[in-house]
Design a protein around this nucleic acid. Sequence first.
DNA 1: TGGCAAACGGACAAGGTGTCCACTTAGCTT
DNA 2: AAGCTAAGTGGACACCTTGTCCGTTTGCCA
Lengths: 222, 222
Amino acid sequence: MSDDEQRGRGAASVHRVGGLLGDLQSADDQPVAPRRRADAERNRAQILSAAEQLFAEQDPRSVTMGEIAKAAGVGRATLYRSFPDPSSVAVALLDEHERRLQGQLIYGPPPLGPGAPAGERLAAFYLAMLDLLERHLPLALGAETGPARFRTGAYGFWRVHVRTLLVDHGVEDPDPLIDIALSPLSPELFQFQRHQLGLSAERIGGSLAVFARRLLESGGGR
Amino acid sequence: MSDDEQRGRGAASVHRVGGLLGDLQSADDQPVAPRRRADAERNRAQILSAAEQLFAEQDPRSVTMGEIAKAAGVGRATLYRSFPDPSSVAVALLDEHERRLQGQLIYGPPPLGPGAPAGERLAAFYLAMLDLLERHLPLALGAETGPARFRTGAYGFWRVHVRTLLVDHGVEDPDPLIDIALSPLSPELFQFQRHQLGLSAERIGGSLAVFARRLLESGGGR
DNA sequence: TGGCAAACGGACAAGGTGTCCACTTAGCTT
DNA sequence: AAGCTAAGTGGACACCTTGTCCGTTTGCCA
């Protein structure tokens, strides 16, 4: 998605999880892809920075390409060169924030990382995602363009992770359950619960933890 | 939503559930609201009929007000008089299909209606909703305009129903769980599972049934 | 320093939205 | 049964967004 995929940063969110500690942006050069020019890099940074602010200060769903371009001080066509639509900008932004969590799921200490029972790991995952949503809700809402959400690299990562947990627990037919287990993390749902119903993040988190443990109760998945 | 609310048909989906058997459209006159004129009624019917076809034969998210108006053979402004946007047309259409299920949940035989254990009722509800999605997916997708989905009368009804089940089961803090339990029924999720992943309705239904029973296991909710 | 490919951004055409307003018509009134 | 009045209609208008084209500028390498 966005143009990361086309240009070499590759399936970034899925595999670029190295550097659990080294959080600095690792060098972005690729062996094959022609390097990005310096001005392009600079513009990209301006765009991302300006867009992050835009998404935060107005309805994320109403941000237009024109607004982003103007805020970033570049022409619209320049913006189109990097991103096909506003939501892909939000996806790129969100991606950076999600990468840390992805690393923790693979290499981190339990219960997020390997080593804890599946139910506990799922509960921990829910809480971590909730924290992510709480902190970056505008971006998550801006990224959510209907069906495109499921084609995101990040969503693919969460799927792989949850599938691992389900299989680990010995669930019978795990595949349909993957997305069912992920569905409570929908950004729009979170917004509704949090700001329409006025539920605290703690209550939602508590329910999700209960939910996770009940779903993957110790004693085998059958 | 739509203009049903403004014009007297009231919170139709939530309370107009009488007639579990009498499926014919009950008389639509209201004591207070000024009656709709005959030509307006006729146009409304044409609009709904034309729109249902449109939603079915192209990407439901791409249907525009102009297209609906043209297909219905009315002017755009006439359409705007009845519906503020395409998704509200889909909501109105879907509403009619949902009303039968709503009746069955309240007055029907178990396990859909009262009388069965909460877990069984939830499982039955999931299967019924899945069936609805399978048959009217285009409308469901057309109706799904982001956060507006949660403000739908129908969604409110499902919330009330699920809350009843949760309370009935003795769940500790039911409110945050309501929407979590409803989240697997998102039309976009269903579409993804069904047509992107290629899962059969049966497999999805099976997982949802397992899911429901595990969530509301017999033996009390705590 | 010169040249070239990459990147930029102003401009254009197409199409959607929501509203206004002059005209038509249904349905009550006498 | 004809007239009146307000509800209903639909063509048209102004505004905004989108996606692309293309002449110009700029980084980078030889």
